[in-house]
Computed example of a mutant assay.
Amino acid sequence: MEEATAFVPGHLAGFSGVHRADDPTAAGAAGGGIVVSDGVRVTVGPTEESDLVVELNGEPVGFGAVSRVLKALRVPGARVEAETPLEPGTGFGVTGAFALGTALAANAAFGRALSEDELVTVAHGAEVHPLRLEPGAPAHNRIDGIPERCRVEYLVLDGPAELDAELPPPEESELRSGAAGRALSAVVQEPTLPVLMRASRRFSREADLLTESAREVVETVNRSGGEAAVAAGGPTVFALGSALSDAGYEAERTEVDVAGARMAE
C-alpha cells in the first residue's frame, strides 16, 4: 500500500436550509453557493501499526468525521495529513472537504475500489452539514450548477464558528429552510452568479444571520457597485470580481473552481 492524495475545493454556501433525517445519508442541506479553488489537500497512507494519526497543516487534530470515514471504509489505521489555507469554521466547508478528501485518498491508498458516488455518500454520512436542489448524499439529492467562472474575493471578519456544532433547534431550522427555499427558487429561475449573490443576501436577512460587521461590509460593497454576501456557514463575506478590494478592503483572492473534488499528484 502506498499513500494517495486528493484535493477538495472549498465551498462558500450563500444559502442553506436544514433537512433532518434518521438516515445520515438522507439528512443535510438544500442550498447554493460558490465552489472556490482554495481548498483542502488530503494525503492518506498506512501507518506501521493500526493507529490513526490526523494532522491539519502539520498540527494534530481530532475531526470525528475523518475517523468515521476510515471506519466506514474498513481502514484499521492510517496517517491522514491535510493542508489548507482556509481556517475551519469560517464558512468554507473545511471539515466536509477534509472528510471527502479522506474518503477519496483512502479509497486509492487502501484499494477499496468504490465509485465516486459511493465515496461521497460515505463522506456525507460522516459529516452531515454547487447548487444542491435536494438534501442528502447522491442516492437522495439532486445537484445542479451555474456554468460561469470568475474571480472571487473573501474577507473573514470574526473568529471561527464552533466545529461539529449541533443542528439548530427546529424553529430556527424552519426559518432557515424557508428562506433557503425562496433563495433556491430564485436561482433556479435565473441561474446566474449575480442572482445567486442577491438570493444569498436575501437569505442572510430572512434567516437573521447578519452580524453588524458583516452587514456593514456587504452594504459598503453594494454601494460601491459590487456584489457581496455573507457565507451561511461562517463569519466570511465573499464578493464577485474585485468588489471587496474596490470598496477598500484587504481581501483574499481566489476563483471559481469547476473541476470539483479530484485525485491529485
Rank of each mutant, 00 (worst) to 15 (best):
G62M: 04
G136K: 01
S177E: 04
P88T: 04
R20H: 03
L56V: 14
L163G: 06
N57E: 08
A231E: 07
G96T: 11
A30Y: 03
A97Y: 06
E219Q: 06
P46I: 05
T102G: 08
V53I: 14
T236H: 01
P147T: 06
V128F: 00
G178A: 10
R205W: 08
G241Q: 03
P147Y: 08
A13M: 07
R176K: 09
E252C: 03
G33H: 06
E255S: 15
T25I: 06
V156N: 06
P194V: 15
N222V: 13
V80A: 02
D117S: 13
T47P: 02
E212H: 04
A82N: 10
S115G: 14
R253W: 03
R198P: 09
E59G: 00
L209K: 13
L209Q: 14
E171K: 07
V128P: 15
P147R: 09
A6K: 01
A105E: 06
D208T: 06
A264H: 09
D22R: 11
G10V: 13
P168C: 04
G225M: 09
L193H: 12
G260S: 01
V66E: 07
R262G: 10
G14Y: 05
P168I: 11
G96R: 02
F92T: 09
L155E: 11
P235Q: 01
L100E: 14
R149F: 06
S67F: 02
A126P: 15
A123N: 11
P160N: 05
A82R: 07
L114T: 07
T84Q: 00
A97L: 05
V221C: 07
A108V: 15
L175A: 12
F7M: 03
H124Y: 08
S177Q: 11
S50D: 14
L104M: 12
A229E: 09
A26E: 15
G28L: 04
A26K: 10
R205G: 01
F98L: 15
A13W: 08
E255T: 07
T192Y: 02
M197Y: 02
G10L: 11
H129D: 13
V69P: 10
A106Y: 10
V80S: 02
G31H: 08
I146C: 03
E171Y: 10
D158K: 07
E166Y: 04
L209T: 15
G91D: 00
L193I: 14
P85W: 00
A161P: 05
P130K: 03
G101R: 02
T43L: 03
L12A: 01
P88Q: 00
T220I: 02
T121I: 06
V75F: 04
E81S: 13
T5I: 02
G31D: 05
V128D: 10
D38Y: 07
A113Q: 13
A251H: 05
V221A: 01
A4F: 06
A232M: 10
F63I: 13
A26T: 09
E55H: 07
G111M: 03
L184P: 14
V40L: 04
A239D: 12
S204E: 12
T192H: 03
V40P: 11
G96F: 04
P130R: 11
